[in-house]
């Protein structure tokens, strides 16, 4: 099978990848680059464990061809957790007891990162809407929602009446 050369910008670093044209961003992240913080499950955009940021938007990397991502800014959980101030979210997930098996958590944190960038001080209903594409089977979502609300309060510029 013929391969194409791709230059991908991931977590601020350039990665040159030689890969088949049909391979997804998820494949390339996990198998070629060893960035396994982005998880793999349904491969059809239903569960959200593979969520990454593409030019700041939360997207399912299982539904994107790696070739579509050239010239765009890709951020994975490995990039978020080293992005200094954004550790507020990771800290909030730990402090709120939002982590159980943890397999959905990187995708949750990525979705929440994109969401809080746009909505720094959200209501609970907005948080739930934003995370509806990320399945979690352990937590019942309550403490995850709490963590995102808490991170919003910590990092947001305004505080809003508590929606809980």
């Amino acid at each position: 099978m013929s391969r194409i050369a791709l230059a991908l910008t991931i977590n601020g670093q350039r990665h040159d990848v030689l890969t088949e044209a049909h391979r997804t961003l998820l494949d390339v992240l996990r198998a070629d680059l060893g960035l396994t913080g982005t998880k793999e499950n349904c491969l059809e955009g239903e569960c959200g464990v593979c969520t990454v940021l593409l030019d700041g938007m939360a997207v399912d990397s299982c539904l994107l061809l790696a070739a579509q991502c050239q010239g765009r800014e890709i951020v994975t959980i490995e990039g978020v957790s080293s992005r200094g101030g954004d550790d507020v979210l990771a800290r909030a997930f730990i402090d709120c007891g939002a982590v159980q098996c943890g397999y959905c958590i990187p995708g949750m944190i990525i979705s929440a990162t994109a969401f809080l960038d746009e909505h720094p001080s959200p209501s609970e209903a907005e948080v739930r809407e934003a995370l509806a594409g990320n399945l979690c089977r352990c937590t019942g979502y309550q403490k995850i929602v709490d963590a995102v609300l808490a991170a919003g309060r910590t990092s947001g510029t305004e505080t809003r009446g508590d929606a809980r």
Binding site: I77, S81, A90, I94, D95, V99, G102, I109
Partner: peptide, 12 residues
Amino acid sequence: PRFDAPGKVTGT
């Protein structure tokens, strides 16, 4: 907090 939380929130 659980001892394995940091590894889970950072994807490591």
